[in-house]
């Protein structure tokens, strides 16, 4: 615990601008990208930067707890994607799982086709949400919170709602819900320092991750049943 605390204290020096910039990059990527590996990396990065920002308003131990919950959620999503990929492969869909194959396919895809229209639309929508979040943080700053936390809270909540509106895939909807919840959590920890509230919000995030992972597996299984047999 002492090592963790020392590590967090070291990292909390990144709590201001670097963390905000990290979230400004990672969160919109979750809206734009359809690649689950990239999305999981962005999600893990987002939880790390949100935890860093939280060090400004809550004790380090509780921040560590929230960070751990976030990374556990990423692990759940990773295992779910692996499971659903193996199910869809069994149903006849082929996709290389090695990192080398994946990165080569990504680069080749971008070189040949550029960014997809879906990705461009997501990027434009994410930019618009970012502008609205900036305007909201300037004109309606959240009470009891520093300016950068206000901005990030609005941004995460806005992008979460955007993802909810744009997605039908259970995992992406789940990421949208979790992003919205993370945005609110970032603001609410400044108002309510209760450990029980932290526990409940963590449990809620965890259950949302589990339920969307379950629905993703059901989706993959239904493809498996439909095509494979």
């Amino acid at each position: 615990m002492a090592i963790l605390r020392a590590l967090l204290e070291q990292l909390s020096t990144l709590a201001a601008t670097p963390a905000v910039v990290g979230i400004l990059v990672a969160a919109p990527l979750l809206v734009v990208s359809r690649d689950w590996r990239l999305n999981l990396l962005s999600l893990a990065a987002k939880y790390t930067f949100v935890a860093l920002l939280m060090t400004q308003v809550m004790p380090l131990e509780m921040v560590a707890l929230k960070g751990l919950i976030g990374w556990l959620i990423c692990l759940i999503f990773y295992l779910t994607e692996q499971q659903s990929k193996s199910l869809t492969r069994a149903a006849g869909e082929t996709e290389g799982l090695s990192l080398q194959t994946w990165s080569a396919a990504r680069i080749e895809g971008w070189r040949r086709q550029g960014v997809s229209s879906q990705g461009l639309f997501g990027l434009m929508a994410a930019l618009m949400v970012a502008v609205v979040a900036y305007a909201a943080a300037s004109s309606l700053p959240l009470p009891e919170t520093p300016a950068e936390i206000s901005l990030v809270s609005y941004l995460l909540a806005g992008l979460g709602i955007l993802l909810l509106g744009l997605s039908q895939d259970p995992l992406r909807v789940g990421i949208g819900m979790l992003m919205f919840l993370a945005g609110f959590d970032l603001f609410y920890v400044a108002l309510e320092h209760s450990l029980v509230v932290t526990g409940f919000l963590g449990a809620l995030s965890f259950v949302i991750a589990l339920v969307t992972a379950y629905l993703k597996t059901v989706q993959a299984a239904s493809i498996d049943t439909g095509r494979g047999g």
Binding site: P170, G176, V211, L215, S222
Partner: peptide
């Protein structure tokens, strides 16, 4: 997967 259920939760 139940989209209605996901909407309810959202």
């Amino acid at each position: 997967p139940t989209r209605g259920g996901l909407q309810y939760l959202s």
